[in-house]
Amino acid sequence: MSTSDTNAPTGPDSAAAHPRFAEALRRLGLDVEIRRFPEATRTAAEAAAAVGCELSEIVKSLVFEADGVPVLVLMDGSSRVDMELVRRELRATKVRRPGADVVREATGYAIGGVPPFGHRTRTRVLADRGLLAHEVVWAAAGTPYTVFPLNPRTLIEHAGGTMVDVREQAT
């Protein structure tokens, strides 16, 4: 990627991460490259285009409510979450997508910048096995403009994730 490219990162600077996420990295002893982009990377497609990777190498950190309790689902960027599989996995009566206020309250981050760990509150985390298909995945670093790379097993471990199969199957 050339530095004249309009999607070029402004630099690998851990200070570019959201302060709460930067603190989580420090506490976990993780030294990762935070890449900040001038254009938003709110969606998996935007992030993949900015990074220059496959869509499936992006980690979506999605908040759901299972019987009113927030739960985080980590899913690769090219797949959709099957809410029925999440419901069964959690043995919940109802699973739904909450509003932006619930996401921010539970995680401390806005939709489009939610990282896989470093949240305001401890939530249950489900990680789809599809993430393990890659040596490195990219996830949000707490803002809609920042991402970081990490081995998926390490990412899931630090997120406290339980490995599951909750990917929507093509019909």
Rank of each mutant, 00 (worst) to 15 (best):
L74V: 11
R120L: 02
P152M: 06
A141K: 05
E57H: 15
F117V: 13
V147Y: 15
E84G: 13
M83L: 02
V71C: 01
E135P: 13
L155V: 08
P115N: 02
L126R: 10
T123D: 09
A133Y: 15
E57K: 06
R80F: 15
E135S: 15
K60M: 14
L150K: 07
V136Y: 01
V51W: 12
F64A: 07
E54V: 02
A133W: 11
L126W: 01
M83N: 05
F148D: 07
A110R: 07
T107E: 00
D101H: 04
A66C: 10
R91W: 05
R80V: 13
A92Q: 08
V147F: 08
V95E: 00
P144M: 01
G68W: 13
G52Q: 12
C53D: 14
P70G: 08
G118P: 12
R122Y: 11
E65M: 08
R91S: 08
V73C: 07
D67E: 00
A139L: 04
R104K: 04
L131H: 03
H134M: 10
T107R: 03
P70Y: 00
H134N: 14
T146Q: 06
E54S: 06
P115Y: 06
V137R: 01
D67Q: 10
L62K: 00
S79I: 03
R153L: 04
W138M: 08
P115M: 09
R87E: 00
S56D: 14
R87S: 07
R120M: 09
A106I: 04
A127K: 10
V125R: 02
S61Y: 00
V63A: 13
V69E: 02
S61K: 08
V137N: 00
S56C: 08
D101I: 03
W138Y: 05
R104C: 02
K94W: 10
G52D: 15
V125T: 15
V86N: 01
F64M: 14
V114E: 14
L55C: 06
T123V: 09
R124C: 13
R153D: 06
G112H: 07
S56L: 13
G99H: 00
D82S: 06
V136A: 15
P152V: 04
D67A: 03
G142T: 07
P152D: 06
E105M: 13
E84Q: 06
E105N: 05
T123A: 13
L155D: 04
A140M: 14
G113D: 12
V137T: 00
E135H: 08
S78Q: 03
R122P: 09
L62V: 10
F117E: 13
P98H: 02
V86C: 14
A139T: 01
D128S: 01
V95Y: 03
L126K: 14
Y109A: 05
V147Q: 04
R124P: 09
A127Y: 00
L55P: 14
L55S: 08
L90H: 07
V69S: 08
R104W: 10
Y109N: 05
R96M: 02
V63T: 11
G68Y: 11
G112E: 10
V137H: 00
R97S: 04
L85V: 15
H119Y: 05
P144L: 15
S61T: 02
P116A: 01
L150S: 10
G68F: 04
S79Y: 08
L62M: 01
